[in-house]
């Protein structure tokens, strides 16, 4: 029996009250065909409509859409091991970090484990109280660290407080793309990947404008890149690009499977596919697919 494909891991971080639970409820209700496994701290806060609920045991909620929600319990690593041992293996894993967790530590676990694939730290920032929390001598440094470690930042409660101050606090600590929102209801397509090593349907579509929040970019064709050019592109991606995934044919033969989330990239040698196929997602207004067109063209001709 072959090993199942690596499990994509997304970490949701943020201080108390920033909206982590709201985001997780949203993901579970709008899984879009993904079988998501979610590990949460506060099991009692998960609100699932009765018609979506298949069974509720002491520490496990099973949903009729294939998603499962478990209590994280005392030990992250054992919870990760249990997640990996689940059969069938879920399509993706979402971990709700505690209010003072160091999300990069969880990220490191996903990077170290060959059976996992790192899929980003999403940090939620509460527009109302981020200033006072960052100024708190007890917890300010740990909350700042959550912002610094983020691959994607979501400012919540922007209807209750002007987000300008929050954006300023974020700007001095992070270059990650920022979504300004009222509630933490981020589209699952932005932050979740799928475990299958096929690309999502968007790879075969043209670019899309998904309301105001994010835009996608894709390429499918005969282009070949040098490994160096691909590395340069991924190490210095265009502004606002959040995730990129693809199979890339290399100059002189061979191919790699490429993953980029935030500033973290992995390249893995694979057998040559029929064509190069790449899909990317970026956060507006910073992300402009035309920038990636230009960078891609430059990379193919270098």
């Amino acid at each position: 029996m072959t090993d199942p494909a690596p499990l994509p891991v997304t970490v949701v971080s943020g201080y108390l009250g920033a909206g982590k639970t709201s985001l997780i409820n949203h993901l579970l209700r709008n899984a879009g065909g993904r079988r998501i496994l979610v590990l949460v701290n506060d099991f009692g806060e998960i609100n699932i409509d009765a018609d979506l609920l298949e069974s509720a045991e002491e520490d496990v909620l099973t949903l009729s859409n294939g998603c499962v929600c478990c209590s994280l319990g005392g030990d992250l690593y054992y919870a990760l091991a249990d997640a990996l041992d689940r059969r069938p293996r879920p399509d993706c894993l979402v971990i709700e970090a505690s209010g003072v967790a160091q999300p990069q530590k969880i990220a490191q676990a996903a990077l170290a484990e060959p059976e996992m694939r790192y899929c980003g730290v999403v940090t939620l920032v509460d527009a109302v109280n981020v200033g006072s929390v960052l100024a708190d001598p007890l917890i300010g440094a740990q909350v700042a660290d959550q912002i610094t470690s983020a691959d994607l930042i979501v400012v919540t409660k922007s209807d209750l407080a002007e987000p300008i101050a929050a954006l300023a606090e974020i700007d001095i600590r992070s270059g990650a793309p920022v979504i300004v929102a009222q509630r933490a209801e981020v589209a699952p397509d932005i932050i979740l990947d799928r475990r299958e090593s096929t690309l999502p349907a968007t790879a075969r579509e043209d670019r899309h404008d998904h309301g105001e929040v994010y835009r996608t970019w894709s390429y499918s064709g005969p282009d070949r890149l040098s490994r160096q050019a691909l590395e340069r592109l991924l190490d210095d991606p265009p502004k606002g690009l959040y995730r990129l995934k693809g199979f890339v044919l290399l100059n002189g033969g061979g191919a790699v499977e490429a993953h980029l989330v935030g500033r973290t990239r992995t390249l893995e040698n694979i057998t040559e596919p029929l064509a190069t196929q790449v899909v990317a997602i970026g956060i507006t207004p910073k992300f402009n697919p035309t920038d990636l067109d230009k960078r891609w063209y430059a990379a193919t001709s270098s």
């Binding site: 209010g99 003072v100 160091q102 440094a141 740990q142």
Partner: peptide, 12 residues
Amino acid sequence: APNGIWVIAPDQ
């Protein structure tokens, strides 16, 4: 060395 870490937030 910088100050250490809270395992749970003081408020919690």
